[in-house]
Amino acid sequence: MKWRKSGYRKSYSDKIFDIVNLLVMIILLFIFVWPLWFVVIASFSDPNQVWMGKVVLWPKGFTLISYEELLQYKRIWTGYANTIFYTVVGTLVNLAMTVCGAYPLSRKDFMPRHVVMILLMITMYFSGGLIPTYLVVSKLGLVNTRWAMIIPGAMSVYNMIVTRTYFMNSIPSSLQEAATLDGASSFQYLIRVVLPLSKPILAVIGLYYAVGHWNDFYSALIYIYDDSMLPLQSFLRDILMSTKLTLNNMSGVDMATAAAKAQLAQTLKYSVIIVSTVPVLCIYPFIQKYFVKGVMIGSVKG
């Protein structure tokens, strides 16, 4: 009879479980990685080979034609610039608003904090809906301006509660007493003590917001009409979901041109996914642990 180091017998059922578990995890790893990997290799492969389904694990007929094609597609770069603007400005506004909400609500000497909390939490469960919100944005004259991408989503109650929980649980209240004794005002205490101590949570929340802005497609669909102000995601949608369009417009075009056109449209898809997703996926490994931390703080009941 074999005994494990810990001194307990490993049962037959556990052995099977370990093997099955290992296999399932390896398969899952493959399922998560392969689709992303495929897009990468397809973007560097000969479009014809991809079209024929020959590209599976490695690029075939290495070429940069997909990226060259993309460089000529000027609208994408306008979208890119717009998205960077919306992400940077939007995230700064989000962070400022979130701190403005979270800090007073974390202070026990802020009298109306319970009422305000309830008012804000109601908005998590009930909203006016698409049209009433649209009418407000439209009345304010924000429709089809850059502000429509930033102001209607200026903060999220959920992120504010996460930040508030952090302020309350991770910063000792003795610091506030000490600061008050030294004659610091609430504002000085916030700037000099609270914010520097809250860098981890501000990073997490900031990244949540930034990814949200980068991936935002909905706001532009509803509020923006001008091509010059559309974000990257709107142009992405035109390219990625366009096979139907090209196919529909093909009547009257001869077969060879049609096939070439369809292949070109297909080719562009891979490079455009890479170019638009790489910024997010590149910083992802470095910030991954912070994201996880954010989820855990958020799961603590406020």
């Binding site: 990625l240 979901m241 997010v280």
Partner: peptide, 11 residues
């Protein structure tokens, strides 16, 4: 989770 819905639908 961090890939945009548009890209997911494209994929």
């Amino acid at each position: 989770y961090f890939i945009s819905t548009v890209v997911i639908c494209g994929m």
